[in-house]
Structure formats: C-alpha cells, structure tokens
Design a protein around this nucleic acid. Structure first.
Lengths: 172, 172
DNA sequence: CTTTTTAATCAGGTCCCCCTGACTAAAATT
DNA sequence: AATTTTAGTCAGGGGGACCTGATTAAAAAG
C-alpha cells in the first residue's frame, strides 16, 4: 500500500519531466534545423530504424508484423527512410518477392544516437542515484509489460508479443 | 564524474520506459475507441487543455503566447477542442475582440486524467522508491530547465520563459 | 475622427502517422 | 499447368501539428 501522496508527487514529476523533455527536444532541433535531423521517436520511421538496429536485414513484411503496422504503412516509412539514406532496399535473392531492408551507416548512426546516446541530463545524477533510477525504471517497465499483457485480452495478442520480443532483451 | 556504465544503463531503461509506455498507451486507447478519447499529449490540443487546466479562461492570444504557438494554430486547436466539447469559446464582454476559452466539465476531466491521475504503474514502487524517484526526477527536471535556458541563447527567450512560468509551480 | 494596433478569422500549405482498397509479380500448393 | 497464397506497390484518405499570408472587427492613439 504505497502512500498516495508520494505517488502523486512522483506522478507530477514524471509528467513535468515529459513536458520539459519534449520542450527541450523541440528547442534542440529547432536550433540546428540543418536539414533533416528530426527527433525520430518510437513511431513511424523511428520505429523501423529501432527495429532494424536490433535486427538488421528484415523484410518489409517482417517489419510490419513486428511493429504491428500494415505493410502499406511500413512501405511508406521505409521509402521515406530510403530517401534520407538511412536504410536500403534490396530484393531478396532466395525469394524474389521479398524486399530486404538494411540500415546504412548513416542509419545505424541515427538509430544509435537515439538509443545508446546518454542524454546529457543524466549527468545531473550521482552514481547512487543512477542505480536507484535504473532499478526503479526496471520495476516500472515490468509493471508496464504486465499492464500491456492484461489489458490486451482481446484480439491483439500479437501486439504484446511483438513488443515483448522486441524489447525484452534490448538492453543487457 | 558519474560512472558511464551506470549512465548507459539508466539511459537504456529510460528509453525502454518511453517505448513501453507508448505502446501501453496505444493499446489502452485502442481498446476503448469509444469515439474520441485520444491520448492528448503535450502538443497541439493537449497543450491547450493543460494550459487551461492551470489557468482557465485565457484568451486565444494569451494561450498562443504562453504556448509559443501562432494565433492561427491556437485557433485551430481550440476549434477542434470545441468540437469535442472540451472547451468553450465566448466573446469577452470587456473587450469584444477577445475570445475567452474555458474548459468544460468534460475538458477538465480530460485534462485531469492527463495530469493528476496517478499512473497505475507507480503502484509497483514502494514508498522509499517513490521518494527516490521523485527526487531524481526533480534533479533531472532542473537539469533540463538549464539545458533549455542555455541552448536557448538566440531569439526564443520567450520559449524558456513560457515553459518555466507554465510549469514551475505546476505541482505543489 | 482618422489611423494604427490588436485579436481573430479564413484560406491554403507542409509534413507526419497510419489505414483501406485494388492490383501485380513471384512463390507455394493442388 | 492452374490456382492460391504471399510480398509489395499505387492510389487515396483521415487526422494531427504547425506555419505564412490576407482580411475583418474592435479598441487604442494620435
């Protein structure tokens, strides 16, 4: 039975965090609008980049299933990424229906920047706090996985599976 | 000099957190697509709702300045919110150029749901962890405010001010 | 009492996420 | 060989976040 007041405080801070982060991002990429260089979130094109950075050389269909998108949407995002030179498309030699999507060096860099890059604001924390933060987030993530699994009783069993498969061992 | 490894772990968890949360949200509102009921983030229409929930009865112009949007964008979002019965528009009696925007009961509920509502996943944490989490987030937020302030050297001095004013005492 | 400033509006545009429907080419099945 | 399934493509659409430009109505200023 956690203290409700404490929960509210944490929730408030979390929301604030989300808002400021969003604003900070906004300003950051407004400053150097050097062409392209978008934030690349967990949607659309960003999703695909992330999936590929974990598992390069997937076919469009595989990407679509994994990311729970229609093949058409997937194609759209992939094409946009191709235009930005972040991924390449090539016909599979074993099955010429398939199109294999691969990250370019640029794409890998972009994906890595999104993931591996340590946000500067983490510098504000001490080692102890980092540990605490990590363990707390681990718990929260587990809880969210649960939430997804239970809320997902109806049809979208694939979603849960895809997400889990995709993320479970992301950071080891 | 914090440990880089620890930072990386934390960063990873944070990213994962973002991703799962996003997916959880997605599933949550896919389930009850009872019409409307969108996530309402810190952008566009959501931004306005949040601003109003903190300071109801602002004029469109005030909203625009506060949120760093053009008046046209603001008008667009407000109109969309009106259609969803989340806010009302009424001409100011003292200055008939102004349009005062007010939250409806529904709008207030929606805004509250976005903010005050304690995310269920926080139940996973103990009191101690909640305290730790809150204090860590406080630090991170402060750091982000800094980042905004410094990165914001050029023109957009208003942005920083708006954000700060808007959020500083959000949760007391 | 004009002129200027201010709050809004309409019109039109760009880019993003994501979906349905219709259709081809290549593989698998019968 | 003929049919069906599978991977993609094109066309078109809906909604969202923003923005610039042009215009109107009302208040403030000269």
């Amino acid at each position: 039975m956690p203290n409700l007041e404490k929960q509210k405080n944490a929730a408030g801070k979390l929301i604030e965090f989300g808002m400021i982060r969003h604003t900070a991002d906004e300003i950051a990429h407004r400053n150097h609008t050097d062409k392209g260089e978008r934030p690349l979130r967990f949607q659309g094109q960003g999703k695909i980049l992330l999936a590929l950075s974990q598992d390069d050389g997937l076919s469009q269909k595989e990407l679509a299933t994994r990311l729970n998108l229609t093949v058409q949407s997937t194609a759209e995002f992939v094409n946009k990424l191709v235009k930005k030179d972040l991924v390449t498309k090539e016909k599979s030699t074993t099955d010429r229906r398939k199109t294999i999507i691969r990250l370019t060096d640029l794409g890998r860099t972009a994906a890595d920047t999104e993931t591996a890059k340590v946000p500067e604001f983490l510098n504000a924390l001490t080692d102890t706090e980092l540990d605490q933060f990590t363990s707390i987030l681990t718990k929260l993530n587990a809880s969210l996985y649960d939430e997804i699994n239970t809320a997902d009783d109806t049809k979208s069993g694939k979603v849960q599976q895809a997400v889990s498969d995709w993320l479970r061992d992301w950071f080891l």
